[in-house]
């Protein structure tokens, strides 16, 4: 955050630090809560597993294993900030992955195949955005069409999995950039890069601020002379693009494209974004929060597998967390409505 603002000195007696903080950063509270949950999970697991949990290997693997989800969550954050939702991302990821695998298997060079994967995702996003913005289709339904389309196209490309042998793609996964016991892969760097770019765009560009303004009140944003139509369509295009990128990351991760990949992943992405403190009605949240949300998700998954418990607990716990956050958000929204 930037330094203390000028102009606050106009007040005679300033309110307490806490009041100022709350009035400035009240919307960050849910994200702080996510950080707190992440810390509790870490500490709890560390104690429970007697010091076997917080190891450089585990933490590094957390990013590696969830890189695709992180990329999806970044795109989803844009859409949810506008007050929309994108159910298509899991399918788009599968489509992009299998498309890339097939192109590579047929000898297409990677520098053609990779842009094709990204464009394929962005095109589905564009379709959803146009339906939402220009045909007044509810985001839920429009992205549902995207979900069907992505999944169907994935099977059109191939009905079974295709192994990827292109060294450039495999390099993304196999390379370990090490620092002691810590390591990071290029896929991890891609995911973190996506977060960084998204954070820049959302906080330091007019386009990004328009996304927030739309989520706050689309009509106000329009009356304020912002280019809302373009921004809203772009949010879905970005989400589609991220779906395409996630397809690349997942293909590198699994060494193959598979048309059944990512069934239900859209729900995981939505859950991660919400747990990270972005409010589903739009306008409030941070892409950094979504990253935290993905880590919470990944940590729960790791803990469950460490404990040897059923993976089904994963869905239940994530569902419960989602519920908790939704109810809290509802309470926050109800309070701010009550103020008016």
């Amino acid at each position: 955050m930037t330094a203390m603002a000028t102009g606050t000195g106009t007040r005679a007696a300033g309110p307490s630090f806490l009041q100022t903080f709350v009035s400035r950063h009240g919307s960050m509270m849910p994200t702080f809560a996510a950080v707190a949950i992440l810390l509790v999970l870490f500490v709890g697991a560390e104690i429970f597993l007697r010091g076997d949990f917080i190891t450089p290997r585990n933490i590094s693997a957390l990013l590696l294993d969830n890189a695709y989800l992180l990329v999806l969550a970044v795109g989803m954050t844009f859409v949810i900030l506008t007050g929309g939702i994108d159910l298509s991302v899991g399918s788009v990821m599968a489509f992009s992955g299998i498309l890339g695998a097939r192109l590579l298997a047929e000898g297409t060079p990677a520098f053609v195949a990779v842009p094709a994967m990204l464009l394929g995702g962005a095109a589905i996003g564009l379709m959803i955005g146009i339906l939402v913005q220009y045909f007044n289709v509810q985001p839920f339904i429009a992205s549902l069409a995207g979900l069907f389309l992505g999944r169907g196209l994935a099977y059109v490309v191939s009905l079974s999995s295709i192994k990827v042998e292109e060294p450039g793609i495999l390099w993304l996964q196999s390379t370990r950039i090490r620092l002691g016991d810590w390591y990071i892969t290029p896929t991890g760097l891609i995911a973190l890069g996506a977060v960084a770019i998204a954070a820049f765009v959302l906080h330091l560009t007019r386009f990004g601020r328009t996304i927030y303004a739309i989520g706050g009140s689309e009509q106000s944003a329009r009356l304020m002379g912002l280019r809302t139509a373009r921004a809203k369509v772009m949010a879905y295009v970005i989400s589609g693009l991220c779906g395409g990128l996630a397809g690349l990351v997942l293909t590198a991760y699994s060494g193959a494209g598979y048309p059944r990949n990512g069934i239900g992943t859209e729900l995981d992405a939505i859950a991660a974004v919400v747990i990270g403190g972005t409010i589903l009605t739009g306008g409030r949240g941070y892409v950094i929060g979504s990253m935290i949300g993905v880590f919470v998700y990944g940590t729960i998954k790791t803990i469950i597998s460490f404990m040897g418990a059923e993976q089904s607990w994963m869905q239940i716990i994530v569902g419960a967390l989602l519920l908790l956050f939704i109810v809290v958000q509802r309470a926050i929204v109800a309070r701010s409505e009550g103020r008016r």
């Binding site: 589903l280 089904s312 869905q315 569902g319 109800a334």
Partner: peptide, 27 residues
């Protein structure tokens, strides 16, 4: 009662329900 948007409210069970089912069948 709680006034949560239907899409979001039913999303919770959509996510957790399958987990419950898996739990019942023991995976």
């Amino acid at each position: 009662v709680l006034g949560i948007q239907p899409i979001i409210a039913t999303l919770v069970l959509m996510l957790a329900g399958r987990g419950v089912a898996l739990l019942i069948t023991g995976g």
